[in-house]
Amino acid sequence: MIKTLQKHGNSMALVIEKPVMEAIGIKENTPLQITVNGNALVITPANVGVGQEKVEASLKKMRLRYGPMLKRLAN
């Protein structure tokens, strides 16, 4: 895919179409990490780790399944 920059105020912008955003799993408000590798511009989602919601959901499942056993081990 070949793209050109577009004027946006005093800056230039690269427009990313919705199908591309969906393919890489980003949304309008997703923080992006921009790095330069040689003469290549690399744009990746900045939220590389697991979100807080997923962590809390996983902990809840673990407590339901392993809570009593963990309490016995703690004693």
Results as ranks from 00 to 15, higher is better:
Pro31Met: 13
Lys27Thr: 12
Pro31His: 11
Leu14Ile: 14
Ile34Val: 15
Pro19Glu: 03
Ile24Tyr: 00
Ile16Cys: 03
Thr30Lys: 02
Gln33Phe: 07
Gly25Val: 01
Leu32Ala: 10
Gln33Glu: 13
Gly25Cys: 05
Pro31Tyr: 12
Val15Pro: 00
Ala23Ser: 14
Leu41Gln: 02
Pro31Gln: 09
Gly38Val: 06
Thr35Val: 11
Leu41Arg: 08
Ile16Met: 08
Gln33Lys: 14
Glu22Ala: 11
Gly25Pro: 00
Gly38Asp: 15
Ala13Ser: 14
Asn29Gly: 06
Ala40Ile: 08
Ile26Thr: 05
Met21Ser: 09
Glu22Phe: 00
Val15Arg: 05
Glu28Ala: 13
Ile26Arg: 03
Thr30Ser: 15
Lys18Cys: 02
Leu14Tyr: 06
Ile16Leu: 14
Pro19Thr: 01
Pro31Gly: 12
Gly25Glu: 07
Pro19Ala: 01
Ala40Gln: 15
Leu41Ala: 13
Asn29Met: 09
Glu28Cys: 03
Ala13Val: 11
Ala23Val: 03
Ala23Thr: 01
Ala23Cys: 01
Lys18Val: 03
Glu22Tyr: 05
Ile16Thr: 04
Gly38Ile: 08
Thr35Trp: 02
Leu41Thr: 10
Ile34Leu: 13
Leu14Gly: 01
Met21Trp: 01
Ile34Cys: 10
Leu41Gly: 07
Ala13Thr: 11
Asn29Arg: 12
Ala23Met: 06
Val20Leu: 13
Val36Thr: 15
Ile26Leu: 06
Thr30Arg: 08
Thr30Glu: 03
Lys27Phe: 04
Glu17Cys: 06
Glu28Lys: 06
Lys27Tyr: 04
Asn37Tyr: 14
Gly38Pro: 04
Ile26Gly: 08
Pro31Lys: 12
Val36Gln: 14
Ile16Val: 15
Leu14Glu: 05
Asn39Gly: 13
Thr35Arg: 10
Asn29Asp: 13
Gly25Gln: 06
Thr35Tyr: 00
Glu17Val: 09
Asn39Ser: 15
Asn29Pro: 00
Ala23Asp: 11
Glu17Gly: 05
Ala13Tyr: 04
Lys27Ala: 08
Thr30Met: 09
Asn39Ala: 13
Ile26Lys: 00
Met12Phe: 09
Val15Asn: 06
Leu14Trp: 04
Asn29Lys: 14
Asn37Gly: 11
Ile34Glu: 04
Lys27His: 09
Met21Tyr: 00
Met12Glu: 10
Glu28Ser: 11
